[in-house]
Nucleic acid binder design. Structure first.
Lengths: 97, 97
DNA sequence: CAAATAGTTCGATGATAGTGGAAATATGTT
DNA sequence: AACATATTTCCACTATCATCGAACTATTTG
């Protein structure tokens, strides 16, 4: 992951609602959480929530999967881990030397 | 560190110039880097750079220390580590269970 | 097909953020 | 004091973001 890509992901995580959404998704694991459930739990108007989710989707932190009328939001751990990897490698002090 | 504080820090890191600045500061360690050196290396106009730096200062990721005419920018590893800690604890999967 | 449910897109608006030149401030030098 | 250097603040402008009701699309059910 390069700096620009990492910055984009961090920017999207850098909003309390979106960070809260991502955190909530991680708690549920791979099966994902329906948009409607997020809306109730986080008490965010539907249209606003939809924008936040698509921001997370746009940087690959979340994927969506439809089952009937229900859209599940699934956290993409691989992308998140790449972000963490970039931060660890490029922005942390190497204490081992 | 709470979610809102973490989101604020991530937001500031979520800009390529600022992420680049922070990365550059980490490379230099505790002694810090003069604003002017950053300006030359990263090729950012002075006023713009100054705004970016103060954004990082405002969330505690950077401190400044003056020595004569030169202002050194010093990365605040403790704050960064708290951010990493929040992300690890709240947004990562616990593989140990 | 009509109605119900789940979510998105549209559209408008107000709020922040990003940018950079010019002027101002702080400090050091002669 | 006058000047040079280092950096910030001011100011104006443009661009992007955040918010949310209303209208729309997708899907299931009766």
């Amino acid at each position: 992951m390069d700096l620009d890509t990492c910055a984009k992901a961090l920017k999207e995580l850098g909003h309390p609602s979106r960070l809260g959404i991502y955190k909530r998704l991680v708690r549920s694991g791979h099966q994902g959480v329906p948009v409607g459930a997020l809306q109730k739990e986080l008490d965010i108007p539907g249209s606003t929530l939809s924008h936040h989710i698509s921001a997370l989707v746009s940087v690959g932190l979340v994927k969506q999967k439809r089952d009937g009328r229900t859209l599940y939001c699934i956290p993409q751990f691989a992308t998140f881990n790449e972000v963490m990897g970039f931060l660890s490698e490029e922005c942390c002090v190497d204490e081992s030397t």
